[in-house]
Amino acid sequence: MALFLQLTLTGLTNGMLYALIALGIVLIFKSSDVINFAQGEFLLIGAYAMFWAVGQVGLPWPVGILITLAVAVLAGVLVERLVLRPLIGEPIISVIMVTIGLSSLIRAIISLFFGTASQPFPNFIPRTPVAFGPAVVPADRLWALGLAVALLALFILFFRRTNEGIAMRAVADDQQAALSMGISIQRVFAIAWAIAAVVAAIAGVLVANIVGVSGDVSRIGLRVFPVVILGGLDSIPGAIVGGVIIGLLETYSGGYLKPGLEQVVPFVALILILMVKPYGLFGQTRIERV
């Protein structure tokens, strides 16, 4: 029972972090049909911005958070403006290749400034163990879980209630019709990239608080791809459900079956599910009226 609770809590935390990161990939895909392979590197940007501001410069952590968010927004908007916008109308595969190139570029720039060695992160979230019945979980994992859930809820409200959120979904549905409402497609793209970078940066900070800051932080970005494909590339609820499923599968298979299996099982599950539901669990199908 203790093990089960332990694995479940860990799995849920990982899953919600995956969901948060996946949200960025889904947003960019929904609005512009681009799959952003540099999403993991946005985690690095967040983790290192926080590391620099708090660990190296010595600013108080709330200031560090503000700086990190600002850096993330800037990075997202710049990437959209300088890299993606000139590529509008190019074949989708070239755009994808560009995001892969971008991921190496971001990685290289960061190692230029900070080196490649793993460094201790200024743990601004306490790591004290918290007892959960028979299970014990470090407090920073619980914080990560709570924050991820809160942020996801906030974004869902944003897409349902605000003009800007509705405009983003409208663009995802029919770009030319959205244009005819006076919605600026470019603005929507920029917002999508900014949000993607922000959620990734926050996830990056939370992950770095748990495992320390190094290039490895971006590896979690790769593990998010089974999540988005499982949930459906264009579905926000899908990202959340997919994140939780993959997170739990990982910890259960690693904990109950054999350590190491957690790397494989998510992909096996992914293939099985795609055989039944080729667009993922929540992937949008075209609406056909009869």
Binding site: R160, I166, R169, D173, D174, I287
Partner: peptide, 14 residues
Amino acid sequence: RVFEHLTVEENLRA
């Protein structure tokens, strides 16, 4: 050209 996946009211708000 309505936004198919949005509700009626969300279409109007768009």
